[in-house]
Design a protein around this nucleic acid. Structure first.
Length: 554
RNA sequence: CGGGCUGUGGCUCAGCUUGGUAGAGCGCUUCGUUCGGGACGAAGAGGCCGCGGGUUCGAAUCCCGCCAGCCCGACCA
C-alpha cells in the first residue's frame, strides 16, 4: 500500500535484530510486532499501519476480525439479497471438500443420496406440534405462482395467481420426507431407509453473519427410518460419531460430544445429540447435530408398517446434519491475525507455487520449472488424494501475491526463482509458521516430504486447537466461581473471557433460563464422557447425576 | 416486531448545521522506475449524491412521504 508502511516493516526488522540477533522468525514474531508498534509511534503516519494482515486483531475485536478475514481470504461476500451470501470459489472449494469427504463417510455407513422438494406445503409443517412452534417464526413463504405488470413499469405477484395453499421454503425437510417415507413403507421389510440429501435451506434469520447465520445456507440432512427404537438410537449415535471423526481428522477440531438439554433440543426430537467446538474467543459453536426423533414424525406423517408379528407399527426415525457453518467454525478455530489458516485435508489447494521472475531472460526457465514441479507434486498423494497444486503466475508484485495466499490460508507456499533453479532448491513457507519463516529445501527433498509436511500442519492445528480448548475448559464447583468465570472485566467492551465450564446442574429448565438471562450462558451439552460422577447442583444445592458443559455460544 | 443510526464512484467515507448542480483515501486502467517481500511516480476512467414530491432563481445540503440497509434487544445450524 504505502511506502511508509514497508519502510516501517524493514525498520522493525532492524530494530528487533539489534536486540535479538539469534531469534528464529517464529520466536521473533511477537517482538517484531511490538517493535513495529514502538517504531510506529515515531514515524510520520503513526496509526495508519496495520501490524498484521488482518485488522483488527483477534484480541482487539473478534467479531470484526472474523468479518475482515472472510473478506480478505475471498471466501464469501454479502449479496444484494438481505441475509444471503455469495460463496466465492475459495470458500465453495472448502465446502466441496467437506462434502466429498462426508459423502464418502455416509456411503460407508450405508446411506444413499436423494433429493426432495424445496417447497413444503404449509399443512405438512403444521403436522408436528413441537415442530410448528420451533419453525413458525422464521420461514419464507411462497404465496403466488405468477407475476404480472404492475402498471408502473414494474412487476407484482398476480392477485389471480394466489396459491390455494402457501408453500414454505424448506427450513428443514423432516415433514416432506416423512410424507414420502409414509408412501414407501408398508412392511418391516422396507426398513431401514437410509437416505441423505445435500441441499439448501432457508431460515429467515434476523441477524445474519457470513457462514455462521445466513437466511439461506447449504447443508446435508440425513433422514432415516427404522423398525425398532434400538436401531434408530444406534443410527443417531453412529452419525454423531461420524461427525466427531470428521471434525477431528479433517477439520482439526476437537469437539465435545453429548446430548442437548430439553431447552436446546431440536423441535420435535426426543433426543438431540451434538458436537460442540470451541473457537478462539472461547465461545462454543454447535458444529453438527444428530436427532433421535422417536415416533413423533412417523405419527405425524403416518410412516407405518406391518411388523414381523403382523401388527401395525410406527417407524422410528432420525435426522442429522452439518452445514456451511462448519466453514465459519474452521475460520474462527484456526485463523490468526494474518488471515485464514486451513487444515490441509479440506484446503482447496494444498500448495501454491509462486514463480519469481525478476528478469525477463530467466522467466521462461522459471515458469517451466514451476510447471514441472507442479506435475511432480500432483502425481503424489496426500490423505489418499492427489496433492492439490495451484500456480499463481499473475503479473502482480511478489509481496502482494504472497500475502494474498497467506490471507487465504493455503497450507504451503513455495517460491521458485532463478537462484533456486541454479541451486536446485525451493523456498518453502508453511501457513502454521510466521509469514517470513522460509525454509530452503532441495527440490527433490521437498517433493518427497510434501505429504508429510501437510500432515504435520494438519496435526499441528489439531494440537493447537486442543490445547486452546483444554486451557479454557474448567471444572467449577460454586455459583460464585461460575458467575466470575463468565463475567468480563470490561463490561463496556467485553474482552475475550470465559470458556467451557463443567458444572453440576439439577436438570431443571428454570436454572437454565436464569443462567441464560444473567450471563447469556447455555448448556451446550450433557457430555457422554468424562463428567459422569454424581454431585451437587451449584445453583440449587440439589443432587446432580453428572456435570454438564456450559458456555456462551454462537 | 420494539429502540437508535445511516443511505454520496467498486469499497470506506468527507461535504449537509451557514443551499451556488461533487471531493478524499483505497481499488481499477495506461506508461515509466522498481520487484526473492504486502513498492514508487505520472497520467486517466468511473457518480443524474436511495426513491418520490415540496420550498427556492438555484437542493447532496432545507421540508414532507416512501424504500432500503446497519447497530442494540427477542429468535436461531
Amino acid at each position: 500500500m504505502s511506502g511508509s508502511r514497508w519502510s516501517s516493516w524493514s525498520g522493525a526488522w532492524r530494530f528487533s535484530a539489534n536486540f535479538s540477533p539469534g531469534f528464529s522468525a517464529i520466536g521473533c514474531l511477537p517482538i517484531l510486532r511490538g517493535a513495529n508498534s514502538f517504531a510506529a509511534r515515531f514515524s510520520r503516519k503513526p496509526m495508519s499501519q496495520p501490524q498484521t494482515a488482518i485488522s483488527p486483531r483477534r484480541d482487539e475485536d473478534f467479531p470484526e476480525w472474523y468479518q475482515q478475514v472472510v473478506r480478505a481470504a475471498d471466501l464469501a461476500e454479502n449479496s444484494d439479497v438481505r441475509g444471503c451470501m455469495v460463496i466465492k470459489p475459495w470458500g465453495y472449494g472448502l465446502w466441496e471438500n467437506m462434502q466429498r469427504i462426508l459423502d464418502g463417510m455416509f456411503k460407508a455407513t450405508g446411506h444413499k443420496n436423494a433429493y426432495f422438494p424445496l417447497f413444503i406445503p404449509l399443512s405438512y409443517l403444521a403436522k408436528e406440534a413441537q415442530h410448528v412452534e420451533g419453525f413458525a417464526k422464521e420461514c419464507a413463504v411462497v404465496t403466488h405462482h405468477r407475476l404480472e405488470a404492475d402498471g408502473r413499469g414494474g412487476l407484482r405477484p398476480a392477485p389471480s395467481a394466489e396459491l390455494t395453499e402457501p408453500l414454505v421454503v424448506r427450513p428443514t425437510s423432516e415433514t416432506i420426507i416423512g410424507a414420502t417415507y409414509a408412501k414407501w413403507v408398508q412392511s418391516y421389510r422396507d426398513l431401514p431407509i437410509l437416505i441423505n440429501q445435500w441441499a439448501n435451506v432457508v431460515r429467515w434469520e434476523m441477524r445474519p453473519r457470513l457462514f455462521l447465520r445466513t437466511a439461506e445456507f447449504l447443508w446435508q440432512e440425513g433422514h432415516t427410518a427404522h423398525e425398532t427404537e434400538r436401531e434408530a438410537r444406534e443410527e443417531t449415535t453412529r452419525m454423531l460419531e461420524v461427525y466427531e471423526k470428521f471434525a477431528r481428522e479433517h477439520l482439526a477440531l476437537p469437539v465435545y460430544t453429548g446430548e442437548k438439554s430439553e431447552a436446546e433440543r431440536f423441535p420435535g426430537a426426543v433426543q438431540t445429540l451434538c458436537i460442540e467446538a470451541m473457537v478462539q474467543d472461547r465461545k462454543a459453536i454447535q458444529a453438527g447435530t444428530s436427532h433421535f426423533l422417536g415416533q413423533n414424525f412417523a405419527k405425524a406423517s403416518g410412516i407405518q408398517f406391518l411388523s414381523r408379528t403382523n401388527t401395525q407399527e410406527f417407524a422410528w426415525t432420525t435426522s442429522w446434519g452439518v452445514s456451511t457453518r462448519l466453514i465459519g467454525t474452521v475460520i474462527m478455530a484456526h485463523g490468526d491475525d494474518d488471515g485464514v489458516v486451513l487444515p490441509p485435508r479440506i484446503a482447496p489447494a494444498h500448495i501454491v507455487l509462486l514463480p519469481v521472475t525478476p528478469k525477463p531472460e530467466t522467466r521462461e526457465a522459471v515458469l517451466a520449472a514451476v510447471e514441472a514441479l507442479a506435475a511432480e507434486l500432483r502425481a503424489r498423494t496426500y490423505a489418499g488424494e492427489p496433492i492439490r497444486v495451484e500456480i499463481d503466475q499473475r503479473d502482480i508484485g511478489g509481496g502482494t501475491k504472497n500475502w494474498e495466499w497467506i490471507k487465504k490460508g493455503v497450507p504451503i507456499r513455495v517460491e521458485l526463482g532463478p537462484r533456486d533453479l541454479e541451486k536446485g532448491s525451493v523456498a518453502v513457507a508453511r501457513r502454521d509458521r510466521a509469514p517470513k519463516d522460509k525454509a530452503f529445501l532441495a527440490t527433490a527433498e521437498f517433493v518427497e516430504g510434501a505429504a508429510e509436511m501437510l500432515q504435520s500442519i494438519q496435526d499441528g492445528l489439531l494440537a493447537r486447537a486442543t490445547a486452546l480448548r483444554d486451557a479454557h475448559t474448567v471444572v467449577l464447583d460454586s455459583k460464585e466461581a461460575f458467575y466470575a468465570f463468565f463475567t468480563a472485566k470490561n463490561s463496556e467492551r467485553p474482552e475475550i473471557h470465559g470458556g467451557f465450564a463443567l458444572a453440576h446442574w439439577n436438570g431443571s429448565r428454570e436454572v437454565e433460563e436464569q443462567i441464560k438471562a444473567d450471563l447469556k450462558v447455555t448448556i451446550r451439552c450433557i457430555p457422554f464422557q468424562g463428567a459422569d460422577e454424581p454431585g451437587t447442583c451449584i445453583f440449587t444445592g440439589q443432587p446432580s447425576r453428572q456435570r454438564v458443559l456450559f458456555a456462551k455460544s454462537y
